[in-house]
């Protein structure tokens, strides 16, 4: 296995406040990493740095051994997909449209050139590719529903499908279980694990739910106040004294 993502000594501060402080971590191809820590520990900021929504102050982020392009959309096209803590969907667009936007962007078949020269209609192949992903996440009967009308569990599934439709190498999942109940969480976990088995997708997952982290992550990295404080297997990290105090709120 080769290293897919290599975060080297990355720092980011907002107004003199170091939110991510000399963080290094790496993700192997096809592996899964859990990222845990208290609210405000810098997990989401780290995601935004990797996805290109923010620029690093110092340090390097390598993807497949190469420096990443600066902008988020370029990074998405070379295989870094992302879901959000608070779902970021495209308003009232239908579920199918969400996937078409991502697919056409990925295939660089989007924009005025395509519309004016090749016609703007959706091809049967594009539709089929999207429907296939929708059936993976169990939304094939919701393709024409406006995404904003769906319940949260299905909206998270739409976000996941949108991330998967371009065949990413790395998925950054930010609190996938947040706001979901037990049944919905279990379903989402089984979808993610199935996709991982079938495609060898690597994931980094942030979550506060112990069961979700345990079910999704092979390795766990714990952060506090912008720094990595522990890493290892799920059992090792959750029994670490610092982690217990800062994240789990248990005094050993």
């Amino acid at each position: 296995m080769s290293t897919l993502l290599d975060v080297r000594d990355v720092s980011k501060s907002f107004g003199g406040n170091a939110v991510v402080n000399h963080v290094s971590l790496s993700v192997e191809d096809g592996s899964s990493l859990g990222l845990v820590g208290s609210n405000g520990a810098g997990k989401t900021t780290l995601f935004r740095l990797i996805a290109g929504e923010l620029a690093v102050d110092s340090g390097d982020i390598l993807f497949q051994g190469r420096t990443l392009p600066p902008r988020a959309d370029d990074r998405a096209r070379i295989g870094i997909a992302r879901t959000f803590q608070i779902v970021e969907l495209f308003g009232g667009q239908t579920v199918l449209d969400h996937l078409l936007v991502a697919l056409q962007a990925h295939q660089r078949r989007q924009g005025p050139w395509r519309d004016l020269v090749h016609g703007g209609r959706t091809t049967p192949e594009e539709r089929a590719a999207c429907m296939e992903i929708l059936s993976v996440v169990g939304l094939d009967d919701r393709a024409q529903a406006p995404a904003s009308t769906l319940p949260l569990g299905e909206r998270r599934a739409v976000e996941l499908a949108r991330a998967l439709v371009c065949g990413p190498r790395l998925l950054l999942a930010d609190e996938p279980s947040s706001g979901l109940d037990g049944g919905e969480t279990a379903q989402l976990i089984s979808i993610i694990n199935r996709v991982r088995r079938e495609t060898g997708l690597a994931i980094v997952v942030v979550d506060h739910d112990l069961a979700t982290v345990e079910a999704l992550a092979d390795h766990v990295v714990a952060m506090d106040a912008g720094s990595v404080i522990a890493h290892g297997t799920f059992a090792e990290v959750t029994t670490n004294v610092d982690v217990m105090r800062s994240w789990l709120g248990v005094t050993p």
Partner: peptide, 30 residues
């Protein structure tokens, strides 16, 4: 043609959620 085609769909996505669109690979700048 632009309104009804891929451009319109992508721009509606950018309008509704700039970060979401960028994370899906939409070339927002272009």
């Amino acid at each position: 043609v632009l309104l009804r085609g891929t451009t319109g769909r992508a721009l509606a996505a950018v309008h509704a959620s700039p970060v979401g669109a960028a994370s899906s690979g939409v070339a927002v700048r272009r």
